[in-house]
């Protein structure tokens, strides 16, 4: 299966959904900052990988797909879309792991302006790599 850019999905998504993501993302970032100040860097670090936006993403994608399918589908299309979202997120978490390791190792050694972009590149590379490995494993299993 090929990875493609599809701008039509942007027309389907609502401004309300983006605004909700913005608000929740902002509130979680504030909460993480306050939690770190109230506790310690060690405890606050755990919260940097909180799945804050996943439930909202799943709710939005399930609602959109169910609306497309109509009432006869009994929510199957939305559930399938939610499974794909959660499966993708589980691959992405390995990227998050790589992000944390690279940031931990590079921050004391180089400037943050090298360490954080490098960690972000590590996230993208590992997440995409795990996703591709999973897809090719599925293809081999089916054959």
């Amino acid at each position: 299966m090929r990875i493609k850019l599809d701008t039509s999905a942007l027309r389907e998504s609502s401004w309300g959904g983006h605004a909700l993501r913005f608000a929740i993302g902002g509130l979680v970032t504030v909460a993480v900052g306050l939690f770190t100040k109230a506790t310690s860097a060690k405890a606050g670090g755990l919260m940097l990988a909180i799945p804050s936006i996943v439930p909202l993403g799943i709710a939005l994608i399930a609602r959109l797909q169910n609306r497309k399918a109509g009432p006869g589908a009994r929510g199957d299309r939305g559930r399938h879309a939610a499974i794909l979202e959660a499966t993708g997120a589980s691959c992405g978490t390995f990227g998050l792991l790589a992000f944390a390791v690279v940031a931990w190792q590079l921050l004391p050694r180089t400037t943050p302006w090298i360490a954080l972009p490098a960690a972000t590149v590590a996230w993208a590379a590992v997440a995409a790599g795990v996703w591709l490995a999973r897809k090719s494993h599925q293809a081999v299993s089916r054959a």
Binding site: L48, V54, E85, G88, G92, G95, F99, A128
Partner: peptide, 23 residues
């Protein structure tokens, strides 16, 4: 949202957005 298939788009649900902003 820009990517298909949708399971690939799901990778971005685990993006380090809160971590980057905080750091």
């Amino acid at each position: 949202d820009l990517f298909t298939p949708k399971s690939f788009a799901g990778l971005f649900a685990a993006a380090p957005s809160v971590a980057l902003a905080t750091m």
